[in-house]
């Protein structure tokens, strides 16, 4: 049995057009703030936070969220996830999100900042029924060290597994170990410092949407590099290499807005952090 540092579970359902929690539970160094409704769409927004302020040696975090039929939710964090040095054992976080038919979850955590000698492993497991829609972003920064040197963390490993009707539909595995890799070199970060990933799974994906996303990113940003491609199931992924968190955030916010407008007729609010 794992001894969890922080546990959180949240079960969401649709009640007459408004998404509400039928169960909220958290324990240890994991917390969720009061739900926020940014507009009258009924979509709920939850801010997750880590009262400890960061992940330490050997920390284990577990989060489980379910969205029942028709539930719509935004999940974000209150601030960047900081992973401090882990001399004995890596820090670990696993998230499981279950989406029933017709539900929508957007999981938009703040950037990850790994400090000198930090080891971190993160696993997101998404289980969707067809007819559900899922949107995810993450941003990896070059970390932080007292000397200002970049990429001084030991390892960052991020795994995303998305199952559609119980079949594996997306597997995304990034593992960066700066001491063993030429981080800024060809094939890796290509001279950039920040890496952003966006994954969207939704039946409404089509080539037109991909073209519009591509044109919008291309028109708005310079000093970055990006790739955009369709998944094996209806959906797409985007990778962005840039030199700041802001460039990636703006790019993803732009894509997020386009999708919200086209698929849900909504204009997303900026996620104010308190």
């Amino acid at each position: 049995m794992t001894d969890w540092t922080g546990v959180l579970s949240l079960d969401l359902e649709d009640r007459k057009g408004k998404t509400v929690a039928k169960n909220v539970f958290f324990q240890g160094a994991f917390k969720v703030m009061r739900p926020v409704y940014h507009d009258d769409s009924g979509q709920v927004c939850y801010y997750l936070l880590n009262p400890g302020g960061g992940y330490l040696d050997g920390d284990r975090y577990s989060m489980k969220i379910t969205a029942d039929e028709g539930a719509k939710a935004t999940l974000t964090t209150q601030s960047a996830t900081k992973v401090y040095k882990t001399p004995k054992d890596h820090a670990y976080q696993e998230t499981e999100i279950i989406l029933k038919k017709g539900s929508y979850v957007e999981f938009l955590p703040d950037p990850l900042i790994a400090y000198e000698n930090a080891r971190y492993q993160q696993k997101n497991i998404i289980r969707m029924e067809s007819g559900a829609t899922f949107l995810y972003t993450d941003i990896l920064t070059p970390g932080w060290s007292p000397s200002g040197e970049r990429f001084t963390y030991d390892t960052i490993q991020l795994i995303n597994e998305i199952y559609l009707d119980e079949k594996l539909a997306v597997f995304d595995h990034i593992k960066l170990t700066p001491a063993k890799q030429k981080m800024s070199g060809l094939g890796f970060m290509e001279g950039f410092t920040h890496l952003g990933s966006m994954i969207v799974v939704g039946e409404q994906t089509n080539n037109g949407l991909l073209d519009r996303l591509y044109e919008r990113i291309e028109a708005n940003e310079s000093n970055m590099k990006f790739g955009l491609s369709k998944l094996a199931v209806p959906g797409f992924s985007i990778r962005v290499l840039a030199n700041s968190t802001q460039v990636i955030e703006r790019t993803f916010a732009e894509c997020h807005r386009l999708i919200s407008e086209e698929w849900f007729g909504l204009t997303p609010n900026s996620l104010r952090k308190y």
Binding site: D172, H173, I174, K175, L186, G187, F188, M189, E190, L195, K225, F226, G227, R239, L241
Partner: peptide, 8 residues
């Protein structure tokens, strides 16, 4: 495991 630049 993929290398970000190659994949991009």
């Amino acid at each position: 495991i993929v290398s970000p630049g190659l994949e991009l």
